[in-house]
């Protein structure tokens, strides 16, 4: 590490908005540690994340995960210059464990605390891999909890919503279709795997909200999910075999098609030539491939963090915290709370 880099602030980031307990350490834009514990296995039999189970797991994992992050980075807690934590959006009970822990570390270390927006953190994490974000950029964030198209004029100060899902998150549609096809939860990875053997044009599933009068940047995945279920159930009722690979590939194609078409259109309409992908669904191989293809055709520079950094983690929160420190943004008030539906316009509160 260079001497200059050592002078940059060391930021400790906490993420507990869903089932991942993430603790990250970032110095400037350099990723030092990304420790993660997950309660995913405990939710599997429920077919979805159970908030109380996630919250209990966060509490158990918190201090050990901090220790792993410090060890991975080779630093002491006393070296930390600022603390950042996801203040929303997310599951309230889960958010509060991370928020309380972050506040306590900040108090004990006498360092400033930044309560930050989870979605903005998904954008910030890309800077750890690909350097400073072009501003303005467009960002497409898709996971089990969110599906948003964001305009980012200034990541530390101004993030605007271009569009969002009006019903299910894209990741939820993956989970529900996986269930219909008899695949495990979470549904993203098994559908991605099955789809590789299938024909994406086999079944023409609906593309939600793509009519001429529909909101150009909003998403809807509820109708798609229902269409897949109807199609599969009709086959089953007729006693015919379900072509699982073709269903998976055709469903995945419909999701990737709508997401990338709308993201590219938003870039074009706003005259923006940089697009960042983030969220767990950004790990989907077809979404990545189609985004690359369409961005290349449209002259848009596409930035996609590695799958590990696309899913929820503490490093993304530390990355945004680092940006806020650098920009001289005032820290959060001591009585900052969590907000399960924190608006995207609020980068830090």
């Amino acid at each position: 590490m260079s001497i200059a880099a050592r002078n940059e602030p060391l930021v400790l980031g906490f993420e507990t908005s869903c089932d991942e307990t993430g603790v990250g350490l970032v110095r400037g834009q350099t990723l030092l540690a990304d420790a993660l514990a997950t309660s995913m296995a405990e939710h599997e039999r429920f077919g979805g994340v159970v908030p109380e189970i996630a919250s209990r797991a966060h509490l158990e994992a918190m201090v050990p995960t901090v220790h792993r992050a410090l060890a991975e980075a080779g630093v002491q807690a006393s070296d930390v210059d600022a603390v950042a934590v996801t203040a929303g959006p997310g599951l309230t009970g889960a958010l509060l464990v991370g928020l309380a822990a972050a506040k306590a570390y900040a108090l004990a270390l006498d360092k400033p605390l930044y309560g930050v927006n989870h979605l903005a953190a998904h954008v910030a994490v890309d800077e750890l891999q690909h350097g400073r974000l072009a501003e303005p950029s467009m960002a497409l964030l898709v996971s089990g909890g969110h599906s948003s198209l964001l305009l980012v004029p200034d990541l530390a100060r101004e993030v605007r919503s271009m569009g969002r899902t009006i019903d299910d998150a894209a990741g939820e549609a993956f989970d529900k279709v996986a269930r219909v096809l008899g695949m495990p939860f979470p549904g993203g990875p098994p559908i991605d795997r099955a789809a590789r053997e299938g024909d994406p044009t086999a079944i023409d599933f609906p593309r939600g909200l793509t009519g001429p009068r529909d909101a150009p940047y909003d998403f809807s995945f509820s109708g798609l999910k229902t269409a897949v279920a109807r199609w599969v159930e009709a086959r089953q009722r007729a006693g015919e075999p379900v072509p699982v690979a073709d269903v998976a590939a055709s469903f995945q194609e419909a999701v990737a098609d709508v997401l990338t078409a709308k993201a590219v259109r938003a870039c074009r309409d706003a005259g923006i030539d940089h697009l960042v992908l983030g969220g767990g669904v950004a790990a989907n191989s077809r979404l990545r491939a189609l985004a690359e293809e369409r961005c290349a055709a449209a002259g848009i520079v596409l930035r996609v963090p590695s799958p590990r950094l696309c899913t929820d983690n503490g490093a993304m929160v530390a990355a945004l915290g680092s940006r806020l420190v650098e920009a001289g943004i005032p820290p959060s008030a001591p009585d900052v709370g969590a907000d399960s539906s924190l608006p995207i316009e609020v980068v830090t509160r």
Binding site: S55, L59, G93, A100, K103, A104
Partner: peptide, 10 residues
């Protein structure tokens, strides 16, 4: 949990 995690972290 707020009290317990605060105590643990402090």
């Amino acid at each position: 949990r707020v009290g317990v995690v605060t105590a643990a972290a402090l």
